[in-house]
Design a protein around this nucleic acid. Structure first.
Length: 485
RNA sequence: GGUAGGAUGGUCUAGCUUGGUAAGAUUUUUGCUUCGGGAGUAAAGGAUCCAGGGUUCAAAUCCCUGUCCUGCCA
């Protein structure tokens, strides 16, 4: 069968695997575990995602850098918590040809330790600040066996921006800007609903002062960690000697922030969340092909229909210069099969044209989200198509924009947490602390409920609790607990 | 990490128990008839049976090692 054989909400795992294979997104048969070739259809979208993200970062004052993939071990060891956090996940290059290297080289799992070494050379005075740069590329992490295409891989594709400021206040502002950027990209461009949490101390980026991470709200109450932004403070600038001369001619250490949207993972979230039983659904601007025209003819009407269909293609292309339009005139594939194929691949707008339409000077337009068919007069088609294009992503966004509050259930005891998680809810509870002294309580939640403390909301919080849901001590924080992918 | 399965034309699967000519569907190519929601028909093409070793007159099949994949549990 060419289509997906299961319903998304009945067997998500099977659905996702089939989607990836049948829509030709990736091929998991590459013979190194956790490394996955992305096929053309996914690669086109991923490059579009990079482009829109990079343009946004540049508009906000970041400049691009291209950095080496290998990092010497000694850089790696400079920040103690960073080493401790990342060491188990590093691929090491130990040989050059047959010769053992004098110093091992890490395949970058993230680029702090490559960049800041150079930042200490590039940043001289307060006139150089703020210093905002980003890197696009692959990073490598030796994950466990539990890999899944796009969601969790041993090599993944991301952007990381690393910014240096003269004051902690400016750095904090940058973290806020990063969160705004995330909303603009994930919600507005990619139609993925998210919410930001300040992560608890025990779940921070290794070496950070604070970590703020977006959780995507997937259906069925599970969340998926998407971009995170970290206030590194001076934790890295001191060991890496990133300092500048201030107005008073005194040396100061910079305040650093870093932000890492993992494009490949966001892609995974996008296809998993927006897709339906027929296959992929993509936001208008992210689709490799946005409009497909399907001619419908019998042997007597073939020539006439094809001529009209080509005319239609030319007119639309002239009118919608930015839009990628394809005329599917393969005559060895039946119309029905074309319908299914392009739905599987998530083309937002399908236009059918057959003899009856030509008689009535119209076409049939089919919406990928609703599946609804609409007759559109040829004279109205230009307007129809451009308003369709500008509404499509909005429609998609509305369809999946879950009211966060409606997924949330309050809980006062561990049993209530367990019950609510079992009902696919995100749980809101009181918690003794999100500093390290709260970790034992979090471990109990992990063990008993098999869900994780995601942290406290970054935007406003209206719920207040007296006691910690686990230990019963006074609750310092209101936190959220959820299952994650 | 534990555990249970699996790997056979491009794809999906049968064959393995009981060793003996690798089979089917689909895909691909070609012809004819078709085409408004996964077309029909005829022919052709397509395999180091995951890799390496062992047992045997003979191995896809039995044994050992490795690699990769999948499910479940932690």
């Amino acid at each position: 069968m060419k289509g997906i054989s299961v319903k998304k909400n009945e067997d998500f795992s099977q659905w996702y695997t089939e989607l990836i294979q049948k829509a030709e997104l990736a091929d998991i048969r590459y013979n190194v575990r956790g490394l996955v070739p992305y096929r053309a259809w996914a690669s086109i979208t991923i490059r579009k995602m990079y482009r829109v993200y990079e343009e946004t970062l540049e508009r906000k004052g970041h400049l691009p850098l291209i950095m080496p993939t290998l990092i010497p071990e000694r850089n790696f060891r400079l920040e103690a918590k960073h080493v401790e956090g990342f060491s188990p996940g590093v691929f090491w290059v130990t040989h050059g040809g047959d010769k053992e290297l004098e110093e091992k080289l890490a395949l970058r799992p993230t680029s702090e330790t490559a960049l800041y070494q150079m930042y200490s050379l590039w940043i001289r005075s307060y006139n150089d600040l703020p210093f905002k740069r980003y890197v696009s590329g692959q990073v490598f992490r030796y994950e466990g066996a539990d890999t899944r295409a796009f969601f969790r891989a041993r090599e993944f594709h991301w952007i990381e921006s690393h910014d240096v400021f003269a004051t902690e206040e400016e750095a904090r502002q940058q973290v806020i800007e990063d969160m705004e950027t995330t909303y603009e990209m994930l919600q507005d461009e990619f139609a993925i609903p998210i919410i930001f949490f300040q992560r608890p101390e025990w779940d921070k980026f290794p070496g950070a002062v604070h970590t703020y991470a977006a959780d995507a709200l997937m259906d069925s109450g599970k969340v998926l960690q998407l971009p995170s932004t970290h206030l590194l403070g001076q934790n890295f600038s001191i060991p890496f000697d990133v300092k500048f001369i201030d107005e008073n001619n005194e040396e100061q250490y910079g305040y650093i922030t870093c932000y890492g949207p993992a494009i490949s993972r966001i892609y995974g979230a996008m296809i998993a969340l927006l897709g339906d039983d027929n296959g992929l659904v993509l936001p208008w601007d992210m689709a490799p092909i946005q409009v497909v025209i399907i001619p419908i003819y019998s042997s007597g009407t073939k020539e006439e229909v094809l001529v009209k269909a080509r005319e239609l293609e030319t007119t639309l292309k002239k009118y919608m210069k930015e839009t990628i339009i394809k005329l599917d005139d393969r005559d060895y594939v039946s119309p029905g099969e074309k319908f299914n194929e392009w739905e599987l691949k998530g083309v937002p707008l399908r236009i059918e044209i057959g003899p009856k339409d030509i008689q009535n000077e119209q076409v049939v337009a089919v919406n990928r989200i609703s599946g609804k068919k609409e007759r559109v007069k040829l004279v109205d088609l230009k307007n129809y198509a451009s308003s369709y294009a500008s509404n499509f992503t909005k429609e998609l966004k509305e369809k999946y924009s879950v009211q966060f509050e409606t997924q949330v259930q309050l809980a006062q005891t561990v049993d209530e947490v367990k019950k609510a998680i079992g009902e696919n809810k995100i749980v809101c509870s009181g918690f003794c602390s999100i500093d390290l002294d709260g970790e034992p309580c979090a471990e109990i939640i992990e063990k008993e409920v098999k869900a994780f403390v995601r942290g406290k909301r970054v935007d406003s919080e209206k719920h207040k609790f007296e006691k910690c849901v686990v230990c019963g001590k006074p609750a310092k924080e209101t936190i959220y607990i959820a299952r994650s992918y």
